[in-house]
């Protein structure tokens, strides 16, 4: 598996990372090196092996349905560049 220049740009766009035209080739090389390293796993036969979603030998912890948090809107928006009446303000996104 290897990626081409178009894929590099697409991944950048999906991840909202700006990739300049003159950087594409560098990233392509690095990504392919990583993929090549990971491809060693292909040598292992995983026929009939269930995908592993966790390495922790414990069950998912659950909590009771109680309201224990919230009610601090000022703190929630404190770091936002722009707010009004405890709303976040963002450049207009309209469908």
């Amino acid at each position: 598996m290897s990626v081409d220049a178009a894929t590099v740009k697409r991944i950048g766009r999906l991840a909202r990372i700006r990739i300049e035209e003159n950087e594409v080739e560098t990233y392509r090389g690095e990504l392919n090196a990583i993929l090549g390293f990971v491809a060693q796993l292909d040598e292992v036969n995983i026929e009939g092996v269930e995908p592993m979603t966790s390495v922790t030998p414990m069950a998912l912890r659950r909590r009771d349905d109680k309201v224990t948090d919230g009610n601090y809107a000022e703190a929630v928006v404190a770091n936002a560049p722009l707010t009004e009446d405890n709303f976040f303000m963002v450049p207009k996104v309209v469908e």
Binding site: E84, F87, M89, V90, P91, K92, V94
Partner: peptide, 14 residues
């Protein structure tokens, strides 16, 4: 997101 409160900004309530 609320779009009608401001000419160039959207308001976000989480």
């Amino acid at each position: 997101s609320i779009h009608d409160q401001h000419p160039s900004m959207s308001f976000v309530d989480l």
